[in-house]
């Protein structure tokens, strides 16, 4: 019997992100990095490294990044 692990995905609103990097500090799979380009406010926002169509996605949609995000800049999808 195979257990089908659900895949997750997050969307970071780079306009709302202020670069506190709480999300990076809690992501169990280290899928969030600091963007190389700054946003309108001058912060270097967090960037999610996986894309939707990628194979072997590691994000489980655990939502810890969103739970700790002070700016409600992260939406989480699962399934």
């Amino acid at each position: 019997m195979t257990t089908k692990t659900k895949k997750g995905r997050i969307v970071i609103d780079s306009k709302l992100c202020k670069g506190c990097y709480f999300c990076m500090s809690v992501c169990p799979n280290e899928l969030i990095v600091i963007s190389t380009e700054s946003n309108e406010k001058g912060y270097y926002p967090a960037r999610f490294t996986e894309t939707k169509d990628e194979k072997d996605r590691k994000c489980t949609g655990c939502a810890m990044c969103a739970v700790i995000c002070p700016d409600i800049a992260i939406e989480v999808y699962r399934g």
């Binding site: 995905r9 670069g19 506190c20 409600i72 992260i74 989480v76 999808y77 399934g79």
Partner: peptide
């Protein structure tokens, strides 16, 4: 795919003025 985390209903979509 389902949304499992989003902005709550009673929180306006306004950027917070708080520090990072």
């Amino acid at each position: 795919e389902k949304v499992v985390f989003k902005r709550p209903k009673y929180m306006k979509k306004a950027p917070f003025h708080y520090c990072p």
